[in-house]
Amino acid sequence: MHDETNKPGAGGSLSVFVVEDEFLIAMDVEMMLEQNGHAVIATAPSVENALRLLEEARPDVALLDMNLRGELVFPVAERLRSLNIPFVLASAYGTVDFEGGEAVADAENIGKPINERRLLDALRRAVGQG
């Protein structure tokens, strides 16, 4: 039998790490997640900031924007992989549009603008509760 209690945020609240350079979108994501009983444990507007926060932060799942003011999010994706933290992309672009896209190739991209239902479903799927 499946032991759901071992899964992060089983049946309830997920702690989410948000990497997004547009503050209004970051805030929107935070509000959407809170309104649905989840918590944003940190938000980062840049790769550097995200990597620094990940020295300590251990979220259940992450949501990544792909293009952070001209910088690609891939180093963050690689770090998350090494920490076994699943992630979801929220990007108006396809991953194949960028060199080095392998780091995020099999992650789900919910696109932009972000649809609330799609965001919640994708985060659940990423942590294996889909």
Partner: peptide, 11 residues
């Protein structure tokens, strides 16, 4: 800008 506008409208 579309995404930001969307976020403003929603929130």
């Amino acid at each position: 800008l579309l995404s930001v506008t969307h976020a403003l409208a929603r929130q």
